[in-house]
Every structure is written in C-alpha cells, then in structure tokens.
Design a protein around this nucleic acid. Sequence first.
RNA 1: GGAGAGGUGGCUGAGUGGUCGAAAGCACCGCACUCGAAAUGCGGCGUACGGGCAACUGUACCGAGGGUUCGAAUCCCUCCCUCUCCGCCA
Length: 424
Amino acid sequence: MHDIRFIRENPAAFDAGLARRGLAPTSALLLEKDEAARAAIRQSEELQARSNAAAKAIGAAMGKGEKDEAERLKAEVSGIKAELPGLEAKAKELGAEVRDLLAALPNLPVDDVPLGEDETGNVFVSAVGEKRDFSFEPLEHDRLDSALGLDFETAANVAGARFAYLRGGVAKLNRALGQFMLDLHTREFGYEEITPPLMVRDEAVFGTGQLPKFAEDLFRTTDGRWLIPTAEVSLTNMVREKILSEGELPLRLTALTQCFRSEAGSAGRDTRGFIRQHQFEKVELVSITTPDTSDAEHERMTQAAETVLNRLGLHFRRMLLCSGDMGFTARKTYDLEVWLPGQKAYREISSCSNCGDFQARRMNTRFRPEGEKSTRFVHTLNGSGLAVGRTLVAVLENYQQADGSIAVPEVLQPYIGGLTRIHG
RNA sequence: GGAGAGGUGGCUGAGUGGUCGAAAGCACCGCACUCGAAAUGCGGCGUACGGGCAACUGUACCGAGGGUUCGAAUCCCUCCCUCUCCGCCA
C-alpha cells in the first residue's frame, strides 16, 4: 500500500517507479480521485459540525427548560440531516475508490534494482561452490529409482496432480532438511521458532499483499478462511495493528510449515517432479525492522538462507531480481538459485525480499522511535530459508551415486540416526 | 454445536440517550518542595485524517460494521473476540 501523501508530493517520481515495473502512470488519476474524496469529506464534515453544534444546543435548551427553542433547533438539525447521508455516501465511495486503486498497485523498486521486464533481466551477484563432476550421466530427481521413496503415481490416485508421497529414506531426508534449517536459523541467526496457524483470515492475507489481486492463487476453506501460500502470511501478520517499541526491533521469526498454492496460472509448467506442488514445505524467515536497518537486515537474511546451501555443499548463485520480475510487495529481492545437475539448470530455491513499509501500511504496524511521541511504519522482510521440497530435489540430484543410491550430506546425518546412504 | 456473561484510553475501572473524548486510580512527563531521592502538592498526559504560517480548530474513534434518534459508550441488529457451564473431540 502506498502513501497517498507521498504521491501528492512526488507524482512524477511515483509514475517513474511504476514505469520501471512496466505499469502505466497512475498518479494523475489517483490525485484526481483523492482530491474529490477529500473535498467530499470536507463538505460532509462541515455539515456534521453544524449539526453537532445544533444538537448540543438542544441539550442545553432542554436543560434550561426552553422547550420552544429546542423544538426550533430540532427542525433545523433535521434539515441539515436530510443532506448528510448523500454527502457521506459520496465521500465514502470516493475514499474507497482511492483505497482500492492504491491496494492494487505493487511496491516500487528501489534505485539499485536493475531495469528489466522478466527473469532474463535479473543480474548475477555471486556464486558459491561449483558444479559437481559426475563420472556418469546424472538423472533428474523424478527419474531416480522409485524405490528411494518419491512416489507421484500413488499421489495422483489419491490426491491428484501436483502432489507426492515421500516414503522411507526420502521422507527421512526431507524431515532432516527441515529440522536442520530451523536449527541453523534459531541457533546461529537469532530467529525465534514459531509454529503458526496454516489457515488465516482475509485481513491477514490482505496485509501481506496476496489479496485482493491474487485470490485465485490461494485455496479457500469452506468457512471463508485461506490456506497460507507461505508462512510469511502468518508470521508477518503477528505484528498487525501493533505499535512496537524500538527496543523490540528487529523481530526475527522463523517457521517450518506446509504451504498451499493453487498454481492456477502455471498450468503446464513443471508438471513433472517435485518442483511445483500444490502443497510443499518451506522454512520461512521474517524480520520486522526499523526503516534505517532494513537494507542491512536484507543482506543478513539472504546470508542466513545462503548458509543453509553452503552447509549442504550445494552449488548456487545469488541473483538480484530486475524490476519486472519482482513480487508484488517487494522493493528489492534476491533469489538464490541452486544447481540441479539432472535438469542441468539453476532453479529458484529461495527468494529474499525487503518490502519496506509496503506491508506495514496494509497491516498498520508501527513502532515508536526511542524518545519520540509519534509513530512510524516498520519495515518488513521475508525470505525462504529454504524451500524444503526443492532442497530435497537438489540433494537428490547432487548427491546421487552411480549405483542409484543417495549419499546423505554430513550435516543431515545426525538428524536421521547417522544414516550415510539412502538405498532404493 | 447449545446456554450464559463480557469487550471502555498504556493498565485497572466508573459511566441515568443530552457540554462524554469519556470519572477515578495506577503508570508516564513537567514544575514545586528537597543537598539529592522518596513522599507530597500542582499541572500535563490517546490515535487517525482534514483546515490553518501559527496559536488553534473540525471530523471520526468506548471490539467491528450497520440501524433507531435532533442527539448513542449507553437502545436495536449482524459479525469478531474473551470467559463460564454443557455436548463432542486429537
């Protein structure tokens, strides 16, 4: 959600930001509506003020027993009130129009975000590790021996497309990955471990920006709630409508949850394999910070996610997303892409975004700077640390052996009783 | 799911449909007293959005949204949340 006052004062800068997102200028329309809305509000408030004053005078007159005067005033107020509902309705409607327009506009990219239309415009930042040398042709994860425990056929029977059963060794490996990530973030990066709700209300989903524009990407429950598409929703909304003290910040929260996505717009994409599922596990990182510290926190968070890949010995690169490829709420995003030797491609495994005060405005989350009376909006950040399912894919493809087994990365072995190999 | 009781400022807690944005206490801030502190006294002390160079001023807000009324914290309706009892349940 944008600050209409900023747009009033910097309409050109605002439109320039939208242009970098590939969007048409909107400030003129917004300001026109805003001006009309404020005029209508002013009118209705002035009328209301007159009516309030007269109503008070009625009370005073009745107190003094001046019945006639009271009756005269009543008539006057009635006259005023005849006009009021129309004016109020108009003010409300115009105000709602402005809000709806604002709610549908994405965050603006910050200056160092490269200009671009789609993922081809993303900029390489850095890489860690190297592609492993195979003495054989590595298989894609879904072509590995099915006895390892990755079972799409049964899932298709029971649940439909884009679901999977993990069985035996692969299920253990998956569990180990999630545990390992949580332990790393809580022990070494100071995140608080949270077990959050997986179903949330409209307001929460609006707060983090999935509503109103992206409802078709979500699953809705029969009682009107939403299954979370990411723990970002439940974690970030923990501070909705709160005024925090500066001393509480930064707030660092992490959770391992299932995520649910309808994948409505991605028919035909990644239909094979475990990359794109309706239900998947992810370890989410969320930070709530002051405006001054969010850039540094963004780097820190991205490093926390990178550390997971590092410890797992997986080769990856960090990309800075271009303006056209960023998500709705982000003002700057790093993607981490892991190398998949079977697919012979880098695939997104984490996305770390600084949302600035964009979500904070939608949630009305503020903090009181030390020693100040007034409040300011916090900054919010979120990142995957990491997508567990995709990390499983990366481990399977990178750690496959010539005999069809999977070597267990050293850091995971303690989580599964010292097991070093998974066999079919 | 059924029956009942509630939701008032940072906290506790009054409030008969009419000078209620709301008593009182606590907390907090300023001043006085004090060498200093405590205690005491006096004063201040909500948020949002408008208007105004400013002093200041208007509107809204007593869980949320509607309604009744000249006027609603107070009456009515719907919803949300909390608590108690009953039922069901991992």
